[in-house]
Amino acid sequence: MARNIVPRSQSPAPAGGSADLRSFEIPAPAAEGPGVGKRVGLFATCLVDLFRPTVGFAAARLLADAGCSVVVPAAQTCCGQPAWNSGDRRGAKRVARTVIRAFEGFDYVVAPSGSCAGMLRHQYPDLFAGDRKWLPQAAALAARTWELTSFLVDEMGVNTVAAKYDGLCTYHDSCSSLREMKVKDAPRTLLASVEGAGLAELATPEICCGFGGAFCVKYPDISNHMVTDKVRDVVATGADTLLAGDMGCLLNIAGKLSREGQTVRCYHVAEVLAGVAAPPIGEPLPKPEKGQ
């Protein structure tokens, strides 16, 4: 059965009213599917944890629909990228060890982020280079880490989802998905199966949105120039919805769209693929009703 996500214009209630929040369900694994018998550790990533829990639930649902049993280890925090990209190897190792311990023993580790998955897959082996104790574990984790859409398509062989979305979407490839994880087709393959969703590509899909982690606050003027270009490109597609696979880019682009008064809605691609209903990025969830 197709799940439906309602665009803002038709959403039953804007922020403050009662919205369908079944997106906060723990999904049961499908009885059949390529992932049956596979234990997947979901690495939600800190940005999803803090700002967009629905993405975590959406990712869990997509994995469960493929038959995977999804576990969210409580000991997960951040991937350590802020420290690593700031040259703090010791700090980054400290965080990375937490991640390695938290995700021991899973068949797969999946993150709804090219950036964090890229950190685990490609940077951890560098981070622990020469560390005889931790390098083997880091390498083992790297070998079973996947970006969500690529995991579904390239590893699970899932090419379709059962979701509906009424809207014309455009897709922003995060740099780490595109170049570090080589993920380009997977989200598009899955999106093509979403009933009602169209895709209008950006003119310059390879160009960075200007987020870059600490870069956007260390060099705000340059970052602003980049996100301004990106927003111009988004608006020029005529799409009413912007999708991406990384929360960093989404917070950045959504924030700029909002500042410019643009009405383009922003979602993590997993939310649309899983058909979870929530107001778009930037709008707070409605207040819980009393007694809930």
Partner: peptide, 26 residues
């Protein structure tokens, strides 16, 4: 957050962390 909000809005969070929500749902 001046470096961020000088040029763009900061989207409001959803109000609960994923880990809390997950554990609560469980």
């Amino acid at each position: 957050a001046g470096g961020w909000t000088g040029h763009r809005d900061f989207p409001a969070p959803q109000g609960i962390t994923f880990q809390s929500a997950w554990r609560k749902a469980k």
